[in-house]
């Protein structure tokens, strides 16, 4: 793991409301370069909303997002993707009609800049570009051990593999920050172990900064370097897994307090 002292992303005093419903209330935290940062909390705590703010699906009413030391202006999700933020979704969002390799190739979409005219004519430089990006995709597919399903349409794959293809697509973007929304939801123990291993490998081999949402406390404690705990849209605790685990407010939120 790389040095963990430089802040790559910081969210400051985020407030997000939907009509009268307050989804996020004055939440601030930061993400260090190269770390695995977990966001946990009970259902409806605002975890996914937070991820959606970072990747631009939601625009908070108040608050700032700082990325690479600069305050980020209000941007559309596809523009934010260009700045190097990739993500996966809680309810898998793959291109179901395409094969695994095609899905992963869409992750290189932004890096391809040859004219469509040359691409249609299969003109030399356009082919070279395609080959070069394809090679990178194949590496990622190897890395995540989904070689055997390269040419399979993803709609027909089992759930656990779909999650892995989604991770591959996000990785193909060579992201500066990778956002994972419940990467292990709905998996059995074995699949969870595989996915944990891949997340750690990605972090160690590529040095990718990862922010993930997870419900399974045991998994979070193993994976994460630091943990943010949200509850009812508010920041409850922020620290190392051990600190968070012994925090009384967190224990109350998870186990309930007698009234």
């Amino acid at each position: 793991m790389s040095e963990k002292n430089s802040v790559i992303m910081e969210v400051k005093n985020i407030n997000l409301r939907f009509g009268g419903v307050i989804a996020i209330q004055n939440v601030s935290f930061n993400i260090f370069e190269g770390e695995i940062r977990a966001i946990i909390g009970p259902n409806g705590a605002g975890k996914s909303s937070m991820l959606n703010v970072i990747n631009g699906f939601y625009h908070p009413q108040e608050g700032e997002v700082w990325f690479n030391g600069e305050k980020r202006p209000s941007m559309e999700p596809y523009q934010i993707a260009k700045t190097g933020i990739a993500r996966t979704f809680q309810n898998i969002a793959l291109f179901k009609g395409m094969t695994t390799i095609e899905n992963v190739m869409t992750g290189r979409q932004l890096k391809m800049n040859k004219n469509f005219f040359w691409q249609m004519l299969r003109y030399g430089p356009a082919i070279d570009e395609e080959v070069q990006h394809r090679r990178r995709c194949e590496e990622i597919i190897d890395f995540l051990e989904i070689n055997h399903i390269r040419k399979t349409p993803v709609g027909s794959l089992p759930y656990g593999l779909q999650k892995r293809v989604e991770l591959a697509r996000a990785l193909a973007m060579d992201p500066k920050i990778l956002l994972l929304d419940e990467p292990m939801a709905g998996m059995n123990v074995e699949e969870k172990q595989d996915m944990s291993r891949f997340i750690i490998d990605v972090n160690e081999e590529f040095g990718t900064t990862i922010a993930l949402i997870e419900h399974d406390m045991a998994v979070v404690m193993d994976l994460a370097d630091r943990v943010v705990v949200l509850d009812y849209g508010k920041l409850l605790a922020d620290g190392t897994p051990a600190e968070v685990q012994s925090n009384q407010a967190v224990i109350d939120a998870y186990l309930g307090v007698p009234h």
Binding site: Y78, K82, A86, F95, K96, M98, T106, Q109, F116, R169
Partner: peptide, 25 residues
């Protein structure tokens, strides 16, 4: 064969996912 064509098929399948890989709807 083209990047735009691939983007188009991506948009057809899933709007959110297309946005997340940087395709402008």
């Amino acid at each position: 064969k083209t990047k735009i064509g691939r983007g188009l098929r991506a948009v057809a399948d899933d709007h959110q996912a297309a946005l997340s890989v940087g395709i402008s709807l």
